[in-house]
Structure formats: structure tokens, C-alpha cells
Lab assay of single mutants.
Amino acid sequence: NITNLCPFDEVFNATRFASVYAWNRKRISNCVADYSVLYNLAPFFTFKCYGVSPTKLNDLCFTNVYADSFVIRGDEVRQIAPGQTGNIADYNYKLPDDFTGCVIAWNSNKLDSKVSGNYNYLYRLFRKSNLKPFERDISTEIYQAGNKPCNGVAGFNCYFPLRSYSFRPTYGVGHQPYRVVVLSFELLHAPATVCGPKKST
């Protein structure tokens, strides 16, 4: 009989979030998941669920729940959905087409922007091929755009693959930082360890 609440607040209220290319994953298990708490945590810009209804979450049980978190800019949030393409979905964080879970995003301009520009958040701009779903690539190998090998040196047709967002508070919403948490629900042929409040007794 599990009584402890799932530590969603640790994920959502973390002081620092990860850069999207090096997104963070927390496995959540053996706890009571009260998803209604999430609705009250922040004024969400996005709370979209796929393959599951957000209002039914509190009635369900899962084997595992994974919470992935990272920062992107406002106009990239739409890429965090099944079947999307674009720089983020292709080279940084890719959801599977049959994704079961929820994408939660909110504006973090007050936390993640600086007047002089916050350069701490990076994204991958160049990659030889698209990522597979939930693949994480943290390599910093020089990207070869031409025929000549780069031998690890940046220059003509040889690019450092990561680029930094420079978040400034005066930017338009599309270029402001957004914190994203992706909850993916895993149903294996194994005992369910993460249940809503109704199912945990």
C-alpha cells in the first residue's frame, strides 16, 4: 500500500533546468501520483496529453512515469509533440509517434532571462542524422558540413554543433524561455507502482 506522493514538485520547481540537447530525465515510481497538483503548480502555457485524457490521469496506474525536463524558446514548444519536425524535434528531443503522456510548458522569462542575455541554455544546431525517439546526444564533436574532414577544428564548413540561446527579458514571447516537462507513461507487463490517489488504497 503506497502512500508517499510522487515528487513532481522537485521536477517542476527545480531551480535550474537542463539545456534541451542534454535534457534531464527523472524516473518516478512507487508513489501516489496526484496530477491535479500539477494544474495548480504554475499558470501553464501548455498542458497537452496524448493517448490519455488529462482529467482521467488520477484514475490510472502505470509501471513507471518518466519526467523529462529542459528549456526551449516559446515558438519551439509546438515541436514537443508526436510527429513534429524542426531543429528541436530533429536534433535535441524527439517524441515517438505513439507517445503516451503529457507535455507541460510554461513561460520562464522571469527566471531564465537576463538583461545582458542568459547564454547558459544550449541547443544542438547541427547533426548528421535525426534523433530516434527519446535519444539523447550530448556530443560536442565538430560538425563537418563540407567534404573536407574537420579534424576537430572549427572553421570553414566545420561547425561547433551547439548554439546558445541568449534569453533577454525584452524579447518577444516566441523568443522567451519556456520550461518544459514531458511526462511519459510506461505500461509494462509488470506491477503498477505509480497510481492516482483513488487507485492507491
Rank of each mutant, 00 (worst) to 15 (best):
F44E: 15
L122I: 10
P161D: 02
D97E: 13
R163Y: 15
F167I: 00
S116M: 10
C158L: 01
F47D: 02
Y21T: 05
S139A: 10
T170H: 06
R124V: 00
Y121D: 00
D112F: 03
Y121K: 07
Q144D: 07
P197M: 15
I88W: 01
D34R: 08
F45W: 14
A22R: 11
K56S: 12
I2M: 13
C49Y: 04
A81Y: 04
C158N: 01
K110F: 07
S36Y: 08
G155N: 06
R136K: 12
Q176M: 04
V115N: 10
F156Q: 06
R168Y: 02
N151D: 12
K110V: 08
R179H: 02
V20I: 06
N30K: 08
V77H: 04
L38F: 13
H189K: 15
A145E: 04
V11H: 05
E135T: 08
A154Q: 14
F126R: 03
K48F: 05
T100W: 09
V77F: 05
G174S: 08
C150M: 01
V65H: 05
V52A: 09
N109K: 07
N87M: 15
D68P: 02
P43K: 13
G51V: 05
E141K: 11
T193Y: 13
I72E: 00
N147I: 06
S29N: 12
F185K: 06
H189L: 11
I88G: 01
L38K: 05
Y159V: 01
G83P: 02
Y39C: 09
K148P: 05
V20P: 07
Y50T: 04
Q84C: 09
P96C: 04
C61Q: 08
T3W: 10
Y21L: 04
Q176K: 02
P54N: 10
L111F: 10
L125M: 11
Y35M: 14
S108Q: 01
C150V: 00
G155I: 03
L57I: 10
K128C: 08
S113M: 01
V20W: 02
A67Y: 06
T140E: 14
T201S: 14
P149Q: 10
L111C: 08
A89W: 02
Y21S: 04
C150G: 00
G101C: 01
K94M: 04
N120I: 07
